[in-house]
């Protein structure tokens, strides 16, 4: 049975590679922000590069924040990647030219600037994966490609969604930060699986199979 994935189209950077990678791992992919298509898809992939507030402005312009909430209310899978992962939190400490825009707020708390001698964190880094991870099955020890200056520091119980106990994977750049979250239907990765070669392909295939 084919798995239909919508990549949310809201003018975010390079989605070309995302679409090709999802096709490579066997998904039927549509790049759109059409409400019916987004809600009907087996999985919704929320990309995001650049400034947090600019991304949120773009997301809101296509009603993306509401579409994510509606899908999650019905237990429908959503995967946020990079800034598409960050916007699942309440906000970001990243400076904004046009004024601060709140995140979608699935998890409380904000993303903060990385504390390291070299920022942005650019390159391939290993991830500490908790037992029971579905996304990282078979690639627990691989490196994934990160490019970011901000991240969630942690995800303590006080910030969880109601009734959920998410699996949190972490990575380190100067200090530990949240690399991925598996929270029922809601998943997010701070790294770019679509740019992480074979390891990224396996992770996305694991996600597709879970849909």
């Amino acid at each position: 049975m084919t798995t239909r994935v919508v990549v949310l189209d809201y003018g975010s950077g390079n989605v070309h590679s995302v679409v090709r990678m999802l096709e490579r791992i066997g998904a039927e992919v549509e790049l759109t922000a059409d409400r019916d298509a987004v809600l009907a898809a087996d999985g919704l992939y929320v990309p995001g590069v650049g400034n947090f507030h600019a991304c949120m402005t773009g997301l809101r312009a296509v009603g993306g924040d509401e579409l994510v909430r509606t899908r999650l209310a019905g237990g429908r899978p959503v995967l946020g990647v990079c800034v598409g992962h960050q916007v699942l939190f309440e906000g970001s400490a990243e400076p904004s030219v046009g004024g601060a825009v709140p995140g979608i707020g699935c998890w409380t708390g904000s993303v903060v600037r990385l504390e390291a001698s070299v920022v942005p964190h650019v390159g391939w880094t290993t991830v500490r994966v908790p037992i029971g991870s579905v996304l990282f099955a078979g690639v627990e020890r691989e490196r994934f490609y990160f490019v970011h200056s901000y991240a969630a520091r942690d995800l303590p119980a006080a910030r969880w969604r109601d009734g959920a106990a998410p699996l949190v994977s972490t990575a380190e750049h100067g200090r530990e930060f949240v690399a991925a979250v598996e929270d029922g239907a809601l998943r997010g990765t701070q790294f770019h699986p679509e740019k992480s070669g074979d390891a990224g392909a396996t992770l996305l295939e694991n996600w597709r199979k879970s849909l």
């Binding site: 964190h121 650019v122 390159g123 391939w124 880094t125 290993t126 500490r128 490196r143 990160f146 990575a171 380190e172 750049h173």
Partner: peptide
């Protein structure tokens, strides 16, 4: 350390 970012080639 295995947890730090790899040198890119």
């Amino acid at each position: 350390m295995a947890v730090s970012v790899a040198v890119r080639v």
